[in-house]
């Protein structure tokens, strides 16, 4: 237990009738990248805001190194750095000025805040813009600057709320590499609904929906939980509702149990350890059932499969 840096116990937040976060409990280990996943409105940002002390929980508590922070006993400001979901910068301050200003607000000396600011600008490729006002920067640059503002006081826990949102591929790679470079030296809590982002950088992932924690494990373990091996997706070109498809599904389940039919998408999904070897047999079953296949895709299991299985396909916003 000694390497647990952040512990959340029974955290609950209500807004009238709506329970935004319900009895959330989890522990984050020192030096890990902790992914916090969930659909829009699942309660991720509310949870993060409570962890950072921006929101007062209705029940439960947050502990950093075993010290409660929600009642103000812990020094949460110095230990936690937060990068909010939206880009939050001072439009009329230069990059270096705002890093210095935020550093000073965290209690750093002006000189140290400037030095740390310059280092961060260097690391995130914004050093050439150090004396430019934020309003003159591109969207990607502003987001990188927003990220730096969370780090200028060198916190041990960094909370990043959707850090890759709105970034172009180049900036996304840069930010991802930067987050990876922070790992081990700092504990990172990352909220996102980008599965790819989470899978690439997170050591452990918690999936939350309707304010409740659904699962918490490593990305590999989570993927295994929805089925080992590969995923074979076969487009049925609108034949999903027919009797022959139902018959084919029954026959395929004789070959392998991981068969599911998505009528809305008109797609047949087969999960199997040896999907490649099974492919000729599967195609034969479909041909016997007089079904014409469209696109056939073979891919590895992804975190998105886990996410969709747990949270469903229904749109949230």
């Amino acid at each position: 237990m000694s390497n647990i840096v952040l512990q959340v116990e029974g955290l609950t937040k209500r807004y009238g009738e709506l329970i935004a976060v319900k009895n959330l409990s989890l522990a984050v280990n020192e030096g890990e990248v902790f992914g916090f996943l969930g659909p829009n409105g699942a309660g991720k940002t509310t949870s993060i805001n409570m962890i950072c002390g921006l929101l007062k929980p209705d029940a439960g508590r947050v502990l950093i190194h075993g010290q409660p922070v929600t009642n103000g006993a812990g020094d949460v400001q110095a230990r936690v750095g937060m990068c909010p979901q939206n880009v939050v910068v001072w439009e009329r301050l230069t990059c270096l000025e705002q890093l210095q200003f935020v550093g000073e607000m965290y209690g750093l000396t002006s000189a140290l805040a400037r030095q740390r600011g310059a280092q961060l600008l260097e690391r995130l490729d914004l050093i050439e813009k150090r004396d430019k006002q934020a309003r003159t920067l591109s969207g990607g640059m502003r987001r990188r600057l927003s990220l730096m503002l969370a780090l200028v006081h060198d916190p041990e826990i960094v909370v990043l709320d959707e850090p890759e949102a709105g970034l172009d591929p180049q900036s996304r790679i840069k930010v991802r590499e930067f987050i990876r470079s922070l790992a081990r030296r700092k504990t990172i809590i990352l909220t996102t609904n980008n599965m790819d982002e989470a899978e690439r950088v997170a050591d452990r992932i918690a999936i939350i929906d309707h304010g409740e924690l659904l699962v918490l494990d490593t990305p590999d373990a989570l993927k295994r939980s929805v089925g080992e091996g590969d995923v074979l997706e076969i487009a049925l070109n609108g034949q999903a509702g027919s009797d022959s498809v139902q018959r084919a599904c029954q026959d395929l389940k004789q070959l392998t149990p991981g068969v599911s039919l998505d009528a809305a998408q008109s797609t047949l999904t087969v999960r199997a350890l040896n999907a490649v070897n099974l492919l000729p047999s599967i195609m034969e079953v479909l041909a016997t059932s007089d079904l014409r296949c469209g696109e056939v895709r073979l891919r590895a299991n992804t975190l998105e499969d886990v996410f969709i299985q747990l949270t469903g396909r229904r749109l949230r916003e």
Partner: peptide
């Protein structure tokens, strides 16, 4: 909000 989590 950003400043709220500082020591200001």
């Amino acid at each position: 909000r950003r400043l709220q989590i500082t020591r200001m």
